[in-house]
Amino acid sequence: MPSLEHPVILDVRGLGMNFGGLRALDNVDIDVREKEIVALIGPNGAGKTTFFNCITGLYEPTDGEVIISPPGRKSEKINGLKPNIVTAKGLSRTFQNIRLFQNMTVLENVMIGRHCRTSSGIVGAILKGPATRSEEKAIVRDSYAILEKIGLDESVNEFAKNLPYGEQRRLEIARALATEPFLLLLDEPAAGMNPQETLELDDLIRRIRDEESISILLIEHDMKLVMSLSDRIFVVDYGRKIAQGAPGEIKNNPAVIKAYLGEDVDA
C-alpha cells in the first residue's frame, strides 16, 4: 500500500451539483494520492456517476473546486473545462454503460485514445509526408502494445460491437489508457462480469497501478473487489460523503452499514 507520504494528485473540495432543484452532490471532499487505488462506493443513485461527470468535465459543478497536481507538473483547477481538455490534462475514464465506438475495430478504438497525444492535421493527412507517416506508425504501434498488455491483441481487427461483454469493458480501459492518464477513473468496471473475469480485472487494475504508476479511482458495487483492491474507500449517500477510510474501517462503520441496509452487503 502506498504510504500517506505520497503527494495528493486529485483534490476535490466542497463539490456540489444542482439539477434544477435537485441537489445531486453536496459538499463532497475527496482526494487521491499518487499510486493509490481509491474506491467510491454508495447505494444506487447516491451521485457517484454524477461525481465522475463533474470531474471529467461532462457537467460543470455548481460549486466547489477540482484541483489536479499531476506528478512533475504544477497544480491547477480544472472544473468547468471541456471534457477533451480534462482528458488532455491526464484524467481519463470509462463508462458505466459501455460507450465504445461500436462500428470501429478494437484497434481503432484504442487509436482514438491516442488522438490527444498526436498532432497531424488535415493537410498532413492528405499529403502524408514522412512526419505523418511516422506518427501514424507510432499510433498503431502504441495502440497495439496497449492491447497486448490488456490481453486483447487477438481481436485487433474485430468490430468493437462483436466483442463479448467482459472484453468490451477491458477495451474501454485500454482506450482510456491510450490517452496517457496519470489518474484513471473506472465507472463500475466489473459490472456484468463473471467471477473469473472479475479476478482478472483485479489483477489488471493492480498491474496498471504498479507498472504504469497510474492512480485509480473506481466506482464499484462488487464489495469483494473493492475491499481487495482499494487502499482507501469513500462512501457517498444522497449526494453527501458519509464515510472515508481504509477498507477495514469502512466495513465496520455504522453509517455505511445503515446506508446499505436492505442492500446486499457481502463484505
Partner: peptide, 8 residues
C-alpha cells in the same frame, strides 16, 4: 423547455 440533462 427543460434543460436537457444527458445521461452518461
Amino acid at each position: 423547455g427543460r434543460t436537457e440533462k444527458h445521461t452518461v
